[in-house]
Write a protein that binds this DNA or RNA. Structure first.
Length: 589
RNA sequence: GGGGUCGUGGUGUAGCUUGGUUAACACGCUGGCCUGUCAAGCCGGAGAUCGCGGGUUCAAGUCCCGUCGGCCCCGCCA
């Protein structure tokens, strides 16, 4: 092992080109691979910027012998002369492929053990290993690229919002636990034993208070914490681009976000998108795609066939219709080829998604084929077929249930079928807004209305009267931005008037005392001159994931946690000393 | 909380359906050869009680039960 001494890196491993031929350079990096030809010895030196081939010639004596001991992932410094590669030896696969560096001096700055998986391998390593040895995983160009895309998105976000007059303000990480929403991560207080801070699920209330404070335009790229089960696109801690603005309505927030989105597309992917972005109401998204975050990269739309199903002799459908429920359906072009087992799998999936059953019928030249086919007259068959229209060789899939339940099940089937049939175009970016969300949803367990977005979301002006008479019909000034079937941002205009807020709390069955206890500081703030305001928050990790073309946000987070919320590299969470617990006044059960 | 799936030398996989001799292949590692490769090549070598525990059996990587871990999904995530 040798000292760096006064050596300075003159170029990165991705910098040298044929124009540099003849230059004396100093490169530092990791051994990406080595090739011993008995005589000449090659090393591909790697850093974040690229790879450069180093050549060691036998004439170099002592240094040549030293070079022969180099192995993968050794950290080395090399001094030498840039040389054009001999004719026919150019490697078109790398940017530095026209040159190589003829080594004159070599320092082995640090050796490396044989790595648990091959860093520059073409074979993938198991994710468990990648997470445990994250520093090795992050040496891979793919992962470095993801983090660089992430960095570009930070930069674009900050530049854009700065240009639009937004102020980056930090909000507390240690805050008061608030009810509603996700489970909080708690931090015990040493000074006030038995009391806890909570880590923010989002800085929601702080940013609203910043509006009361007159900051007018706030943003923050901020870590948020939710103690809920994970998914490919959900981690215990994640990052939001949090935005709030005063004296605006829904259109202002949406226009701002569209500008930011377009700039991201331009800067990161070099693509222009046309504005304004398309919009769907929640009702339409559910009716046509069975999802509040529909993937519009493919069709396969759902149709409501309740009326026609009611004209059949099929008992299940007839009872559904007379019971005031609906029958919805999908048509899979070419789906008649599906085997019994494939259809059984679909039915099982539908059941898992909450359906009571799945009725499938194959479309033929003469009508329908399948167990239930005989209950439908040719007239009804013709009209149902006409809905898509369906043709011979297609498969019809029916779900009979309450409207939204049936839509959701078919929405899930729609996605699954699109994946199986490879209907989703790669490398396409489909943005849309979903607007006019219901303000509330009824919680069957607690037998009360719950805020769908959060309890400060304003109802649409024209729906305020319905709050008392038909809460289920009230639409919110809320909007979600969807990209390729993933919700990437969501926001709303907030209630800024005490009276309306009070009304909402009553509806949510939150007593004055409870409201006071839980949100008192915010409500009090609203009494000292709260401007109309609203905002939005991006799920930043999801955004990076989609821009990087990955399937999990773990690939765009430097140190993510597993499904079970463990950090395999550092072993968090871990037990702590008895002494630490005593200081906090905590006794384990 | 529930469902699914995977776990085999250091790594990635095959073998498991239908139990049966020495667990196979590639990469990596290692010894040797080789002066122009670039996922170098050629010859040789080491390296696996098949995640863990129990059971069935004359016999278990293979079948059964349990358990642990990774991943995907439902619930959950205002």
């Amino acid at each position: 092992m040798e000292k760096l001494g006064n050596w300075k890196r003159s170029h990165t491993c991705g910098a040298l080109r044929k124009e540099n031929a003849g230059a004396e350079v100093t490169l530092m990096g990791w051994v990406d691979s080595w090739r011993d030809h008995g005589g000449v010895f090659f090393v591909d030196l790697r850093d974040r910027y690229g790879k450069t081939q180093i050549v060691f010639n036998p004439e170099a004596g002592e240094m040549y012998q030293k070079a022969k001991d180099l192995r993968n992932e050794f950290v080395v410094a090399v001094r030498g002369q840039v040389a054009l590669r001999p004719t026919g030896m150019i490697n078109k696969n790398i940017a530095t492929g026209e040159i190589e560096v003829a080594a004159k001096e070599l320092k082995i700055l640090n050796p490396a053990k044989v790595t648990p998986f091959e860093v520059s391998a073409y074979v993938e390593a198991a994710e468990e290993l990648r997470l445990k040895y994250r520093y090795l995983d992050l040496r891979r160009p793919d992962m470095q690229r993801n983090l660089l895309i992430r960095n570009e998105l930070y930069k674009t976000t900050r530049a854009y919002l700065d240009r639009h007059g937004f102020v980056d303000i930090e909000t507390p990480i240690l805050m008061r636990s608030t009810p509603e929403g996700a489970r909080d991560y708690l931090v015990p207080s040493r000074l006030y034993k038995g009391s806890f801070y909570a880590l923010p699920q989002s800085p929601q209330m702080y940013k609203q208070i910043l509006m009361v404070a007159g900051m007018d335009r706030y943003f923050q790229i901020v870590r948020c914490f939710r103690d809920e089960d994970t998914r490919a696109d959900r981690q215990p801690e994640f990052t939001q681009i949090d935005i709030e603005m005063s004296f605006v309505d829904q259109e202002d927030v949406m226009a701002l976000v569209e500008g930011l989105t377009a700039e991201m597309m331009q800067n990161i992917l070099g693509r222009k998108i046309s504005l304004p972005l398309p919009r769907l109401t929640y009702a339409e998204a559910m009716a046509r795609f069975g999802s509040d975050k529909p993937d519009l990269r493919f069709g396969l739309e759902i149709r409501d066939v309740t009326a026609l199903a009611g004209q059949s002799e099929f008992k299940i459908f007839v009872e559904t219709v007379t019971g005031g429920k609906t029958v919805q359906a999908l048509c899979l072009p070419g789906g008649a080829k599906y085997s019994r087992k494939q259809i059984d799998d679909l039915a099982q999936y539908a059941t898992q998604m909450g359906a009571k059953g799945l009725v499938t019928l194959k479309v033929t030249e003469s009508g329908w084929e399948g167990g239930a086919a005989k209950f439908f007259s040719s007239g009804v068959i013709g009209k149902v077929n006409a809905a898509w229209p369906a043709k011979a060789g297609d498969l019809l899939l029916f779900v009979a249930d309450e409207e939204e339940k049936a839509q959701k099940v078919l929405g899930a089937l729609r996605l699954r079928l699109a994946q199986e049939e490879k209907l989703i175009p790669e490398n396409s970016f489909n943005f849309l807004w979903v607007v006019d969300f219901p303000l509330l949803e009824f919680d069957e367990e607690e037998k009360r209305w719950m805020a769908r977005h959060h309890p400060f979301t304003a109802p649409k002006d024209e729906d305020i009267a319905l709050v008392d008479t038909a809460p289920e019909k009230v639409r919110a000034k809320a909007y979600d931005l969807v990209l390729n079937g993933t919700e990437i941002a969501g926001g709303s205009i907030r209630i800024h008037q005490r009276e309306l807020q009070k009304k909402m709390f009553n509806l949510l069955k939150l007593s004055d005392a409870e409201a006071e206890n839980k949100f008192g500081f915010l409500l009090e703030a609203f009494e000292y001159g709260a401007p109309p305001h609203g905002g939005i928050a991006f799920g930043f990790d999801r955004l990076v994931m989609l821009f990087a073309g990955r399937k999990s946000i773990r690939d765009v987070i430097a140190f993510p946690k597993t499904n079970a919320a463990l950090s395999l590299m550092d072993g968090a969470p871990s037990p702590v000393d008895e002494k630490q617990l005593r200081e906090l006044g905590i006794k384990l059960a």
